[in-house]
Design a protein around this nucleic acid. Sequence first.
DNA 1: ATAGATGCAAATGTTTTGCAGGAAA
DNA 2: TTTCCTGCAAAACATTTGCATCTAT
Lengths: 143, 143
Amino acid sequence: MAHDVERQSLARYLDDHNLRHTRQRDAILEVFLDAEGHTTAENLYERVRGKHPNIGYTTVYRTMKLLCDAGLAAERRFEDGITRYEIMHEHHDHLVCTRCGRIIEFECGMIESAQDQIADRYGFRILRHRHELYGHCRDCRDD
Amino acid sequence: MAHDVERQSLARYLDDHNLRHTRQRDAILEVFLDAEGHTTAENLYERVRGKHPNIGYTTVYRTMKLLCDAGLAAERRFEDGITRYEIMHEHHDHLVCTRCGRIIEFECGMIESAQDQIADRYGFRILRHRHELYGHCRDCRDD
DNA sequence: ATAGATGCAAATGTTTTGCAGGAAA
DNA sequence: TTTCCTGCAAAACATTTGCATCTAT
């Protein structure tokens, strides 16, 4: 069965926190993992509705928050103001195509260490950051 | 008289676009320039009300949009979801203290060129970016 | 049996829009 | 006097909350 690791991970988190294992949580986790990308609450909602026509937005939002707490998902908010959820994995930042909406992940050690230098300069302690490059992807650029 | 350059700059923009020179626009520009920082609409609204008790939020928002179009102001939206306006000047990014709300500007050529390299790698054309470092400033860190 | 979860409707909070009256050119 | 502005109230919009009901344990 696919997504077995994640399901177990969620089960463990629920047990550890005295939370309940419900069919809605299962369904949302499944749909979230199938997307494998930067999914919106709306997209999740519509797709879960396929299997569970009565599920509400509320449950989608609450469950995604739960998945974030459980370390399975991460919230991202780009310029359009809509929250997207991605499957949690190593640290990275994003390129966002403002034409087709494509989101590309990148990672750059040079930038990370430059950030640390800047933080030092100002006596600042960095807890997290947000670094997004907006523009046109290979398929959308005109030049 | 202070802020003379900016007032003239606005006047020129209004003339060029057949827009009107009103006392509200004057007042909001004045209050915006006095702040010299990353001001919210709420803050502007409250301070303009001191001189013009009847002014509405609508006018603040519309005027700030105008000042952005005129190249005098720039909009920034950090993690708290509230739009802040800063006086337009050379390109820079921000350190944001999540305890006291202090905002420090920084600029780093090394990061800029690293970004260009990343864009090249993906065939991406960067139009703009957002780079924010969140954490605790010198006065707020505990370690 | 009971703590917790769900889903609807209503609230939230910031920003935007419709519109009737008001002011600049 | 005509075009643009203003300010109020209401809308927009994504997300959250109150609450009565349901369900996992």
